[in-house]
């Protein structure tokens, strides 16, 4: 299973979820995507995105203003 980090620091809405969507399209099922964002809405958005797209949100942490989400592609 591959793991890929997507750096979306500094990007504004809807940048991070667009990047996440495009990265998921290229990933294989079971791959882990780690996305880092500083957009204030991302905390709620990434949860909504995972619910809607059916991908699994493994963890979501705030590391000194950088939100880091680990997502497993369904």
């Amino acid at each position: 299973m591959a793991e890929k980090v997507i750096n979306c620091r500094g990007m504004q809405c809807p940048g991070p979820i667009v990047q996440l969507f495009q990265a998921t399209k290229q990933a294989a099922a079971g791959d882990i995507l780690v996305i880092e964002a500083t957009d204030g809405g991302f905390k709620r958005d990434v949860q909504a995105w995972c619910r809607k797209t059916g991908n699994e949100l493994l963890s979501l942490e705030n590391d000194a203003g950088v939100l880091r989400a680990r997502i497993k592609k369904a």
Binding site: C13, P14, I17, V18, L20, F21, Q22, A48, W49, K52, T53
Partner: peptide, 11 residues
């Protein structure tokens, strides 16, 4: 466009 692109990114 933000809504449209967001929706597209939600699948």
């Amino acid at each position: 466009f933000i809504i449209a692109n967001g929706a597209a990114a939600m699948g």
